[in-house]
Simulated assay, not measured.
Amino acid sequence: MRFGYFVPQGWRHDLVGIDPAEHWSTMHGLAAHADRDGSPWESIWVYDHFHTVPVHSETEATHEAWSLMSAFAASTSRVRLGQMCTCMAYRNPAYLAKVAATVDVISGGRLEMGIGAGWYEHEWRAYGYGFPDAPERLRMLREGVEIMHQAWATGRANFSGEHYTVDGAIFQPQPLQEGGIPMWVAGGGEKVTLKIAAKYAAYTNFYGSPDEFSHKSEVLRGHTDRLGRDFDSIVRSANFNTVIGTSEADVAARLERLEARVAPYLGTGATRRFIGDYRSHAAIAVGTVDQVIERLLDMKRRGLGYAIHYFPELAFDTSVLDLYEREVLPALR
């Protein structure tokens, strides 16, 4: 199994209380931790969002994903760089293919391309994108992925679709990675998203209960079989909200500190929903070291090849990284 983690960028109220002038040094320090020689982490990730969640804060920061991609590309040397996931409709796909190729060159060929149809209605409307229904968003995703595939495979793109048109667009420089930038198609939609993934993805990213993960995997297998593609050529990944401790009391204390930190910014109801995601029985990576190892080993047996962890404490307490690296990673690798 391979591993990455999210760098806090503010979207999930994970930089609250830190002066904005210190945000970059906080983010860069955590990127440098993953980038160090001998690090067990293969990748770092950010989210592609503009407004905080679950409350749309008027004052709290959410740093833009592709600006961070460029900054991390220039300030790290080993770790791979991804977004989970870029919303197709937020940028013209031809422009996005150009931006991504430039970031890949800056990074020396370390970029991962996470892509999805998008879902966060509040920021869609706030930024003037409207909010098309799900089938239309998925059609935009399909067209955009085709344009990016052409761009990186051939250096040019010609496409005339319902949503996007390019006419002889030139893409130089090309990405440094042979075959183009690896595509991560995010989402578990069985009729469209997983079908797109079966055709274009090097990686999928879908989440749910262990049984749901197994079911989505079999749906993906059906699509690859119909296309004549090797199912095992696609690495299946999932994201995990992660709070681990040496004991159940340690886990509870960490959750209490997290709740106390965000409560002044979220209010009572939103705080209850926020912390509920971590206290849910479905939170696979919340628990003691032994509990989390057992659950992730089960996911590995179901075909999980890449775990991407979101540690909500990271900007304030990096001891969770030390604990994960020392106790959990060896058992999973």
Rank of each mutant, 00 (worst) to 15 (best):
residue 189 G to A: 13
residue 3 F to E: 02
residue 315 A to W: 09
residue 240 F to L: 03
residue 204 T to N: 14
residue 242 T to V: 00
residue 322 D to M: 01
residue 155 G to L: 04
residue 222 G to F: 04
residue 250 D to I: 08
residue 42 E to W: 04
residue 231 F to A: 15
residue 5 Y to L: 03
residue 99 V to D: 08
residue 64 E to G: 11
residue 166 V to N: 06
residue 298 D to T: 06
residue 141 L to P: 02
residue 279 R to V: 02
residue 299 M to H: 09
residue 143 E to G: 03
residue 279 R to Q: 08
residue 48 D to C: 13
residue 76 T to G: 08
residue 39 S to H: 09
residue 65 A to W: 07
residue 36 R to N: 10
residue 270 A to L: 06
residue 73 A to T: 09
residue 137 R to L: 10
residue 188 G to H: 05
residue 141 L to K: 05
residue 176 L to D: 04
residue 270 A to S: 12
residue 200 Y to V: 02
residue 288 T to L: 00
residue 331 A to H: 13
residue 298 D to K: 06
residue 57 S to P: 08
residue 200 Y to Q: 10
residue 171 F to Y: 02
residue 140 M to Y: 10
residue 68 L to Q: 00
residue 202 A to I: 00
residue 159 F to K: 08
residue 99 V to K: 06
residue 163 H to A: 07
residue 263 A to H: 15
residue 298 D to Q: 08
residue 203 Y to M: 04
residue 16 V to D: 03
residue 88 M to Q: 15
residue 185 V to R: 07
residue 37 D to N: 00
residue 274 F to K: 01
residue 256 E to A: 12
residue 115 I to T: 01
residue 194 L to G: 06
residue 301 R to G: 13
residue 56 H to G: 02
residue 218 E to M: 15
residue 120 Y to K: 10
residue 16 V to N: 09
residue 326 R to P: 10
residue 122 H to C: 00
